[in-house]
Computed example of a mutant assay.
Amino acid sequence: MATYCIGDIQGCHDEFLALLDRLQFDPKRDRLWLTGDLVNRGPRSLAVMRYVRDLGDCATVILGNHDIHMLAAWAGASNLKKNDTVQHVLDARDADELMHWLRRQPLLHEDPGLGYVMLHAGLLPAWTLEQARERAREAETALAGEGYRELFDHIYGDTPDNWSDDLTGWDRLRCIINAFTRMRFCDMQGRMRMDYKGPPGGQPDGLVPWFQVPGRKPMPAGLTLVVGHWSTLGYLEQGDLVALDTGCLWGGCLTAIRLDGERQRISQPCPGAKRPG
Rank of each mutant, 00 (worst) to 15 (best):
K82W: 03
T35H: 07
V117I: 12
E237S: 10
W250D: 09
D166I: 02
F16L: 15
S45R: 03
T3D: 01
G222C: 11
N79S: 15
A243Y: 01
I177W: 01
P125Q: 05
G277N: 14
Q10E: 15
I62A: 03
G147Q: 13
R191K: 15
R216M: 14
I9L: 14
R137D: 09
R149Y: 11
T85E: 12
K197D: 06
V242R: 02
T35W: 05
D8A: 07
I62Q: 10
L108A: 04
L34R: 04
N83E: 05
T168E: 14
D94E: 13
V227F: 06
E97P: 03
D171Y: 08
A18P: 04
Y148A: 07
G42W: 00
R172V: 02
C270S: 14
D54E: 14
M183G: 03
R263S: 07
I62F: 07
V52S: 01
V227L: 09
M49I: 15
G228N: 05
D37V: 07
L19T: 03
L90W: 15
T3A: 08
L114T: 10
N79T: 13
P269I: 08
E15A: 10
M192V: 13
D91V: 10
I9H: 08
I266C: 00
A47F: 00
G7S: 04
E15G: 12
A92I: 11
D30Q: 00
M188P: 04
L55W: 08
A144Q: 09
A2R: 15
Q238I: 02
L241A: 10
Q24V: 13
G252T: 11
K217G: 03
T168I: 12
P271E: 11
W101V: 02
S45N: 00
I257S: 05
L225I: 04
G190W: 11
Y4D: 13
P43F: 04
I257W: 11
V48D: 06
G7N: 04
T181F: 00
Y196G: 05
A142T: 12
D153W: 07
Q24M: 09
L259D: 05
E130D: 12
D84I: 08
N65K: 07
D240Q: 10
G7A: 06
N162P: 11
D37L: 01
W101D: 05
K82G: 02
D205A: 15
E146L: 05
W74L: 06
T168V: 14
R133W: 06
I176T: 04
R216G: 12
